[in-house]
């Protein structure tokens, strides 16, 4: 197949960027989207032109490195699929494909399609853990965890921190990411001691960098792991409770 790419090129952080057009003939439908970019880069390289910088690593949808805006959709047109698992057969022969980096103030572009997502790590630093120093753990079966709870925590924990939720959000909000991280731990019995402190810390850190949620639901559609916006509601509830809770009575619930 033959496609035409319109790709955002930007030399470095803060440098001006522009959409550039590349002709991409002889593309196989079996290729993944990133393999198509590999081929385009190979051709650019042989013409002595700088290849397009983009991030990718595991190419099986779990590391969260890849991610780009493809034709106005985060990770492209296939639902529940990261860019690396998107295949060219989802595009039509002769199609024009627009590729842009994630855009948000918190995700400055480093080069071409590569953005800096370290703000996510800052949110995790602010409380996205359970304090359990090495060696201090009780037996794993000491705490019973109902299957539904473990499953819900796992649903939240499936987040790969790719940033698609932020990129897809008209407000550049990171609610889906933060709520997934918060709820992974807040739903579990092990996470209860730090539950309210965690949600306060993480939401406050989030709001330093990102916008607010207006419940469009775009994030949920863009999420390659199909994480539900239900978690945003749970996070909101925990945040309000955290503001009011007398923490001295925490173990009386």
């Amino acid at each position: 197949m033959h496609v035409t790419l319109h790709v955002w090129r930007q030399a470095g952080p803060g440098a001006p960027g522009t959409m550039e057009t590349y002709d991409a003939p002889d593309i196989s439908e079996e290729m993944s989207f990133l393999e198509m970019l590999d081929v385009v880069n190979e051709r650019l390289n042989s013409q002595g032109r700088e290849p397009i910088a983009f991030e990718h690593d595991c190419r099986e949808g779990i590391c969260g490195s890849c991610g780009m805006m493809i034709n106005g959709q985060a990770h492209g047109p296939e639902r529940g699929t990261a860019t690396c698992q998107l295949h060219m057969r989802k595009f039509a022969d002769g199609e024009h494909i627009y590729i842009e980096p994630w855009r948000a103030k918190a995700f400055p572009v480093l080069r071409d399609l590569v953005v800096d997502r370290s703000a996510f790590d800052k949110i995790v630093e602010a409380g996205g853990y359970i304090t359990a120093p090495t060696g201090a753990a009780p037996d794993a079966n000491l705490t019973l965890i109902p299957k539904d709870v473990a499953d819900a925590a796992m649903d939240a924990a499936a987040c790969i921190a790719c940033g698609a939720c932020v990129a897809a959000c008209p407000n550049s909000a990171a609610q889906l990411f933060t709520s997934a991280k918060v709820n992974h731990l807040n739903l579990l019995p092990q996470g209860q001691s730090e539950r309210y402190q965690r949600v306060l810390g993480m939401v406050d850190a989030m709001e330093e960098f990102f916008g607010s949620c207006t419940n469009h639901g775009e994030c949920q559609e863009a999420c390659p792991k199909e994480i539900s916006i239900d978690f945003i509601a749970y996070m909101n509830r925990d945040y309000v409770r955290a503001q009011l809770k007398n923490r001295k009575l925490l173990s009386q619930d």
Partner: peptide, 12 residues
């Protein structure tokens, strides 16, 4: 708040 968090919009 949202305007401050938004970068320049998408081209497409």
């Amino acid at each position: 708040m949202n305007q401050r968090a938004n970068a320049d919009g998408y081209q497409q």
